[in-house]
Amino acid sequence: MTGRRLVQKPWWKTALGLVLTAFMLFPVYWMVNVSLTQTSDLRSDPPHWFPLHPTFEGYTAVFQQQLPALGTSLLVGLGCVALTVVIAAPAGYALALLNLRGGRTLNFLLLVAQMIPAVVMAMGFYAVYNSLGLLNTVGGLIIADSTVAVPFGVLLYTAFMSGIPRELLQAARVDGAGAWRTFRSIVLPVSRNSTLTVSLFAFLWAWSDFIFASTLNRNGELIPITLGIYNYIGNNTTQWNAIMATAVVASVPATVLLVVAQRYVAAGVTAGAVKD
């Protein structure tokens, strides 16, 4: 933080910052505004800039129709978090602290894996799931969604665990702890922040996923909220207030996580986060 100059803080910079932020976040404001607009006012020209007579019709519709979809998304998100952490944490341990042979190659493969377009993975998964009967299942969707988060998670864990002081591990070994004990009672607790960052991104990616949902789960009984919005757009293009209300509700997890876990978000982005 050496670069921060504390000498002068001109007010005009704050003003400019506010203007820029308002400009940047205008689409978000607009989404909320439209979600509160009366259906009869949606087509008015010019559009209403402020929801002077707000209506909650849109939100009522969301909670009547989209609750199962929200539940599915929550389930998929949490499943994806669990799967990602269970696979990534021990792998990070092996790569960072156990001198796994071929570790460099594995690291390299994980980087390459992050570059593969989701649409290609979706096609491959479609073919595989078609033969295994996993199409339109929540489990299948969890696995497909986790392919975005697992390479990221392993790389993040590896980077963090490499920095754990060896003395700590040595002390554990002197006390007679094996590799598994060391992992469970020292490495994992120390890596808590990494676990939070990985979980946060695994959840957000799964929650936001559209490509896998729209390909592997499109005829599923349990559809996630992204697909709920998409079908909504297709079926009734006039009710944009209801569509935007669904969009607002679908944005809640992201907003909550940004507020309560901002530093983990920043850490994840800086760690070369992937978003496709």
Partner: peptide
Amino acid sequence: SGFRLSGLLRAMFLVPWLLPLIVSAST
């Protein structure tokens, strides 16, 4: 350059990145 509220505003700039793509795209 650091100014009053710069930390908060910078955090706000993350919002578009965190929203589900379908939300931003349909908006």
